Amino acid sequence: MKKSELFQMRVTLDWLAQIDAWRSQQPDLPARAVAIRRLIEKALDQRTPSKPE
Rank of each mutant, 00 (worst) to 15 (best):
M1I: 14
K2V: 13
K3A: 06
K3P: 10
S4M: 03
S4L: 13
E5W: 07
E5H: 13
L6A: 05
F7T: 00
Q8E: 15
Q8P: 00
M9C: 12
R10M: 03
V11Y: 05
V11G: 08
T12H: 02
L13A: 07
W15Y: 07
L16W: 02
L16D: 01
I19C: 04
I19Y: 00
I19P: 01
D20L: 02
D20Y: 04
A21S: 13
A21E: 13
W22M: 01
W22P: 09
R23E: 01
S24G: 06
S24C: 10
S24L: 05
Q25C: 11
Q25G: 10
Q25L: 08
Q25P: 02
Q26A: 08
D28C: 08
L29F: 12
P30Q: 06
P30W: 07
P30G: 06
P30I: 10
A31Q: 12
A31L: 14
R32P: 00
R32I: 09
A33V: 07
A33N: 10
V34M: 12
A35E: 02
A35C: 00
R38E: 11
R38I: 09
L39I: 05
L39D: 04
L39W: 08
L39K: 08
I40V: 01
E41N: 00
E41K: 10
K42L: 05
K42M: 15
A43K: 05
L44Y: 03
L44P: 03
L44H: 12
L44R: 11
D45R: 08
D45T: 11
D45F: 10
D45V: 04
Q46N: 12
T48S: 08
T48M: 12
P49D: 14
P49W: 03
P49F: 07
S50C: 00
S50T: 04
K51H: 12
E53V: 10
E53S: 12
E53C: 07
